[in-house]
Amino acid sequence: MSFLGSGIRHQPWIWQVTVLCFVLGFLLAGSVQTVSGLKRSGTSGGNRIGGIAQQAGAPIETVLKQQKQIEELLKEKTKLENSLALGEGPQKALNDELQKMKLTAGLSEVTGNGIILTLQDSKTGPPSNRQFEAEDYNIHDVTIQRAINELNASGAEAISINGQRLLSRTAIRCVGPTAQVNGVPMTSPYHIKVIGDPETLAGGLTFPGGFVQWLNSYDPEMVKIEKIVKKDLVVPAYSGSTEFRYAKPTAPASQTVKKSPVSQTTDKDTQ
């Protein structure tokens, strides 16, 4: 038995409907392809803002890839600098100075004793009769800033937050639901690696009325301190842009001193 019955078999309209059905199938395939393309990129088909989110997705991957490349290139550069300055003499002196400056600026990976301070949002939240304090049970940019301030006061020599090295130019700020360090968004928990004397660093945080006690008054789970005494704590190098667009070094007394790109970035102490 035919689909549309035998009575209408040889009529011309069936051909026109067929041609349009072909067009319809073609359009349907296009729709299916675009919508499945949207789903693949993580945005739903019904969301009309999806296009913007889709366009934002690719650059993030590119940035992460390029950051890896920068890290590798920086390591390679240090290796080359060291091999250039073999033996004794002015070259070695210059390179030693250069490496010291890079250490100060946070451009080289460092290792040593220290502490790992872990800050995370409270999982329990405030008791039911104190819901108005809910915001105090989350880690904010100011919470991290306060910890960093105490750590610097306690002689921290190198600090990284979730892998982001802190420089003199580093900003720690809330952007929406995430905190950004060096412009890189991150969320709780925040692992803060600090190199310095473990006892002094921990003491700077745990004194009565200090940072740890303040957070403990809300939820003791929010803050954890782990002391590293085997000299195996590694704080990564900074891998972002070190370009200075406005600041120029004032003219040195002796014109024979050549300015190197690194010395431009190290005009003040990092920590």
Partner: peptide
């Protein structure tokens, strides 16, 4: 009678 269906599928 099946032509429209065939047309849609091939499209």
């Amino acid at each position: 009678g099946w032509l429209p269906v065939v047309g849609a599928l091939s499209g």
